[in-house]
Amino acid sequence: MGYRVVDTDAVEPAPDRPCEQRALSEAAGLTQMAVNRFVAEPGEQIPLAYHYHDEQEEVFYVLSGTLHVETPEETYTVEADQLFAVEPGSPQRAFNPEEAEEPVAVVAVGAPPAADDAHAYDPDA
Rank of each mutant, 00 (worst) to 15 (best):
M1T: 11
Y3G: 09
V5K: 13
D7M: 05
D9H: 12
E12D: 10
P13L: 11
P13Q: 04
A14Q: 12
P15L: 07
R17H: 04
A23P: 13
L24H: 11
L24M: 06
L24I: 09
S25Q: 08
S25D: 10
L30K: 14
A34W: 06
N36D: 13
R37Y: 09
E41F: 09
P42S: 05
Q45D: 08
I46P: 01
I46Q: 03
I46E: 00
A49Q: 14
E55F: 10
E57A: 07
V59N: 10
V59L: 15
V59I: 15
Y61G: 00
V62N: 03
V62Q: 03
S64R: 13
S64V: 06
L67M: 06
H68W: 11
V69E: 04
E70A: 15
T71Y: 07
E73G: 02
E74S: 12
E79C: 04
A80N: 08
A80W: 09
A80F: 03
F84H: 14
A85D: 07
V86L: 14
V86N: 13
E87D: 15
S90T: 15
R93Q: 14
R93V: 02
A94H: 07
A94P: 09
N96L: 01
N96S: 06
P97F: 13
P97C: 10
E98S: 09
E98M: 12
E101D: 15
E102V: 03
V106M: 04
A108T: 13
A108E: 10
V109Q: 02
G110Q: 07
A111G: 15
P112S: 06
D117N: 11
A118V: 09
A118I: 04
Y121K: 00
A125G: 13
A125F: 08
